[in-house]
């Protein structure tokens, strides 16, 4: 089967998942004790009961749940997520304004993770059970074990505050200016550390496993230089296992953005979500949650496509 057909099939398979994501998100809103009107009433006990009923009608809360869901989905599909109560801005406008900041941070974290993990994993696998492997294993374990908010605080305390090498708090330049890199380094490293450590371990394991396979001996028996054997034959096969967890690592970076943006005062979606949670901005919370789910499904899809590009056997299986 061709690659295009494979991709099409994967896209179609994502549709029920996306539907599930929207249902879960919607359900979260509806299983919460008390609806928006109850909260408004609680905030302002002077509201008469007929006024509350009128508000319910206005918000469509007197309709059956599935009608409410369809209404909501209709809004979502046309980009209408309602408005932010406290500022009366469109939720979608807020999300779109914050999105590039988060993408920049996440992308930086990803690139950092890959740059550390792939060479580190190769090194550890090639030197398996030697000192270098043990050291890198310890480093990777530390990277997984260190809480990212604490790592962020410590990096900031040492490198930004005490040594004053990096700027802190809200970046004041536009996202595309080169000086932005200075703002990105500390939060980017913080967000990418866990992913780097995880990926490095996976890379080491899969590489060590691949190194034991006969095609490696066969490649060496051909007289190819060890560099070619590792970087051409073994690497591509081990990357296959890394792509299977790529979506999972993306999820860890997305989750990390919530924490790290708060630590560094980064004006992205993650910090927006925390602010929304504290202000109980339901519309905003739902929009960001839904968006996160969609994004992860998309990342999964991309990982599958890369997987198929790397491994010719997969394309034929479908």
């Amino acid at each position: 089967m061709s690659l295009q057909k494979f991709i099409l099939k994967r896209i179609l398979a994502s549709v029920p998942v996306l539907f599930g994501v929207s249902v879960v998100t919607f359900a979260l809103m509806h299983i919460t004790p008390g609806d928006i009107v109850d909260q408004l009433v609680a905030a302002n006990p002077n509201v008469p009961s007929h006024e509350a009923a009128r508000l319910r009608r206005e918000f469509g809360l007197d309709q059956p749940v599935w009608v409410q869901y369809l209404d909501w989905m209709q809004g979502v599909l046309t980009g209408d997520f309602g408005e932010v109560y406290s500022s009366s801005r469109d939720v979608s406008a807020v999300v779109l304004a914050r999105l590039p900041e988060t993408i920049a941070l996440g992308l930086f974290g990803w690139v950092f993770a890959i740059l550390i993990a792939i060479p580190g994993g190769i090194y550890a696998a090639v030197n398996k059970d030697q000192l270098g492997d043990t050291v890198s294993r310890f480093v990777a374990l530390s990277g997984i074990s260190i809480p990212n908010f604490w790592l962020g605080l410590m990096l900031m305390a040492v490198f930004a505050v005490q040594l004053d090498w990096f700027p802190t708090l809200d970046p004041q330049t536009s996202l595309l200016s080169p000086s932005m890199l200075w703002w990105l380094i500390l939060p980017g490293v913080t967000i990418g550390t866990a992913a780097a450590a995880n990926m490095m371990r996976i890379m080491r394991t899969s590489m060590a496993e691949e190194l034991n396979k006969e095609y490696v001996t066969a490649a060496r028996a051909k007289g190819l230089p060890e560099r070619t054997v590792i970087l051409k034959h073994v690497l591509r096969n081990s990357l296959i296992s890394v792509t299977t967890v790529a979506a999972f690592l993306t999820a860890s970076i997305v989750a990390g953005s919530v924490v790290v943006e708060t630590v560094f005062g980064w004006p992205g979606l993650g910090r927006e979500l925390i602010d929304a949670v504290h202000l109980r901005e339901i519309n905003l919370i739902l929009a960001i949650t839904l968006f996160t789910g969609f994004f992860i499904v998309l990342a999964n899809l991309l990982a599958d496509i890369v997987y198929a590009l790397l491994d010719p056997r997969i394309r034929d299986e479908y």
């Binding site: 095609y215 001996t217 230089p225 296959i240």
Partner: peptide
């Protein structure tokens, strides 16, 4: 390395595993 594959060739037991799948 100049000998391997050049002056001495090797055929493996299980061709399926001796060939790189990718």
């Amino acid at each position: 390395r100049q000998i391997r594959g050049n002056r001495i060739g090797m055929i493996f037991q299980d061709a399926q595993t001796a060939l790189n799948p990718v």
